[in-house]
Design a protein around this nucleic acid. Sequence first.
DNA 1: GTCTATAGGCCGATAGAC
DNA 2: GTCTATCGGCCTATAGAC
Lengths: 212, 212
Amino acid sequence: MKPERKSGEESGSTRDAILDATEAIMVEEGYSAVTSRRVAERAGLKSQLVHYYFRTMDELFVTAYERSEKEFLQRHLQAVSSQNPIRALWDLAIHPKRTRLSQELIALSHHRKSMRSITARVLEQTHAINTAFIGKYLQEAGVDPDEFPPVVVSHIINGLSRGLINEEAVGVSQGHSELRAFAECWISKLEAAHGQAHASGDKAEIDAPASA
Amino acid sequence: MKPERKSGEESGSTRDAILDATEAIMVEEGYSAVTSRRVAERAGLKSQLVHYYFRTMDELFVTAYERSEKEFLQRHLQAVSSQNPIRALWDLAIHPKRTRLSQELIALSHHRKSMRSITARVLEQTHAINTAFIGKYLQEAGVDPDEFPPVVVSHIINGLSRGLINEEAVGVSQGHSELRAFAECWISKLEAAHGQAHASGDKAEIDAPASA
DNA sequence: GTCTATAGGCCGATAGAC
DNA sequence: GTCTATCGGCCTATAGAC
C-alpha cells in the first residue's frame, strides 16, 4: 500500500525531492500553489508519482508539515540551549524562508482541518520549551518573570520577525532599522546582565517599567 | 462595461453581498476557499453574477481588499486619536475577525501580485499614522523614543495579537492570560504616566531597561 | 518505481436569452 | 441585472502496462 522504505533505507530521494518541492512552492508562491502537478514539475517528475508517494494531497501536506516540525524543533532546541538563547531565537526568527514556511503552514491549517492538530502541537511545544529555557535565562539575567513572562518574550520575538518578513516580502522597509536596533539593544542588554550575574554569582538587574 | 452605479446610487446591495461573502469565506476558510461559485452560494446568488460585478477574480480580490483598507484605516485613525491610543489599538488588534481577515489578505498578497501593492500601501499607512500619533502619546508619557520607537510598539501590538489569534484558532490557549496581563500592565502604566504628565504639565517617567 | 491514459470534479470566464 | 448553457482548463485520484 504505502511506499514503505526497503530494508536498506536510503531515505528515498524521490520522496524527499517531492517534499522539498512542496516546501519551496509554499515559500515562494503560498500554500495554494501546491498542487500535485506543480510539485512534480518543480521536482522534475510526473504528477502521478506524487500520488504514488502520497496517496492524497492531505497526506503530502501532513508529511511535509511533520518533517518541518522536526527541523523546527531541532533548531529551536539548539537555539534555546545556546549561550544567549534570546539572540539565537531572534536570529532564527528573522530567517526569511523558515518564517515564511512556518507562516504558510499556519495559514494552511486555517484552511485544512488535518493540519490544525499539528499546528497546535508545534505551538504548544514552542511554549513549553521557551518557558523552560528562556525562563531560566531571563531569571538569571534578573528579569522579573511576572512582568516579562517567557511566553511573552517568545511571542514578541515571533511577532516582530513575522512583521519584518511580511513587510520585506511586499517591499516595505520603513522602520526596519529601528526594529532591528530595538532587538539588538535588548538582546545585548540581556547578554550583559546575564554575564554579569554569572560572574558575580548574583542577580543582575534589568528594570521593569516604573510603576507610575 | 463595468457595473457603474446608476445615478441614484443606493450602494448596490448585490455587489456588497458579494464582497461580504468574500470576506466571510476568507475569515472562515482562508483565501483559497474564495471561488466565484462558493462566494455566490454564500450570498445566495448564481456564480455568474460574481463575474458580472467583478470581471475577474483578481478584480474581486482587489475590490474587497480596498474596501477593507478603507474600513481598517478609519478604525485605525479612530483608535489612534482616542484618549489612550495604545489601549484602543490593542483592543482593535485582538478583534479576531478583523485580524484574521487582515492576515488572510497579507497571505493572499504572497500568492497574487495584484495584491502586493495594496498590502504595501496599508502597511506604510499604518506606520505613518502610528509614528505620528503613538509617537506623540508615548513622548507625552515620558517614553524615550530611541528605546521604544512608535513603530516598534506598533509591531509588538500587532505581533502579539496575531499570535494570540492564531493560537486560539487551533485551540491553544497556553500563556494567553500572561499575554493579556502583560498588555494590560503596560497599557495601564502608560495611561497613568500620560495622565500624570498632563496633570503636572511635566514629563512622567517610564524606565527603559537599565544599561547594564 | 515510473510510465501512459483517463475518469470525474470544480474552476474561471463568456455568450446570449429575457 | 439576472438567468441558462457551456467551453476549456487545471485539478485529484485511480487503473494498468512495463
